[in-house]
Design a protein around this nucleic acid. Structure first.
Lengths: 191, 191
DNA sequence: TGATTTGCCTAAACACTATAGGCGACCTAC
DNA sequence: GTAGGTCGCCTATAGTGTTTAGGCAAATCA
């Protein structure tokens, strides 16, 4: 019997693809084994069970997303950079809902995905360089950006915007306008 | 053998409590049966399996949350009402993480939780009466409020703010200031 | 008190997770 | 080119969760 050629990387990658197709909850070790045409037990030497698989998908997705976001932001600043960053997240979530869901898993402190998660924080801070923000406001700004981007994205992929007009696209543009304005105002004012 | 006195309501309520203690994913029909001291199969006449149970918890939580938010907003307007509404959500998520997670489930169009979900949209719109918003901006405003509140809340309960100072409480106050300001600006300007 | 309803039961089939240990496919060395 | 050894995928097995079908007894009501 020929071997299937499994590796941790290939298994996790297949898991990510499956997650985008059928949802993260439906990504089971069994389903993945079926996809590879091997027995379930065979995967346990490549990934650390169901939770290890999810962590692997989270790491993969966080890395991919940080790469895309970094690329989108490169060479831009101010509102341009903000919109590019935010839209990189939103687009990724739309194209890869399963992977995006994995990025939102609560990570264990020693998870393989922790380093990737840090890249995102630094990237957001770099976008803030385009805004002459008071250092004391930088954390709040990072958290605001994270909240707006993740909140909008989560509601959108969760279908919350599907039952009202107009298309979410338009709200997205207005909301980014407002976010940019807020960040510029925080620069000067500050209470 | 005496009967346990199960009803749909009691089962769903116990499910909600269990969700807050051990996480929504860990709420299984089996675990719930153990809690009641009955056999697993006995619950199937009261709730429609695992998915029915989750829908029931979602309905319960959405109703509870709409009640609390409605109460919080009553008699307030403008920024007061906005802060009360947003904080009702955030506080609920902090106190009842499992129930809150249930409110974020994607609902089937015919889910028992759909009517409860509608209450939330109308409640948010009522808060906007405190802002002389252009009708065309009302939808964007509802979506912005939803994004900020859910985004912040989700990141907070997900632990994303735990590894930076200061406490999220302070960011919450600054972010609500900014949200209020944005809504007041949208009233006049509008691009 | 006897008949009906209904609540919780047993039984059984099926899926997913996980571990232990075996056998054969592949690589390397001579 | 074949003899070893390694490691990849296997079988076997046990535990837990989901779900349906059908049975018996407790509650309800005449």
């Amino acid at each position: 019997m020929p071997r299937a050629g499994l590796t941790s990387e290939r298994v996790v990658r297949a898991g990510a693809e499956l997650a985008d197709e059928v949802g993260l909850e439906a990504v089971t070790v069994s389903a993945l084994a079926r996809a590879f045409g091997v027995r379930t037990a065979s995967l346990y030497s490549h990934v650390d069970g169901a939770t290890g698989l999810q962590e692997g998908i989270a790491r993969l997705a966080l890395d991919e997303l940080a790469d895309l976001a970094g690329e989108a932001v490169a060479g831009r600043s101010g509102k341009d950079a903000l919109v590019a960053l935010a839209s990189a997240y939103r687009d990724y979530a739309g194209r890869h809902p399963g992977r995006y869901a994995a990025t939102r898993l609560r990570l264990a402190a020693d998870s393989v995905a922790v380093p990737a998660a840090r890249r995102h924080a630094t990237l957001t801070r770099s976008v803030l360089r385009g805004y002459p923000l008071d250092e004391a406001y930088a954390v709040h700004a990072v958290r605001l950006i994270g909240s707006v981007v993740h909140g909008f994205t989560a509601l959108e992929v969760g279908g919350s915007f599907e039952h009202s007009a107009p298309a979410s696209e338009e709200s997205w543009a207005r909301i980014l306008d407002a976010l940019d304005l807020t960040l510029r105002q925080w620069s000067s004012s500050a209470s």
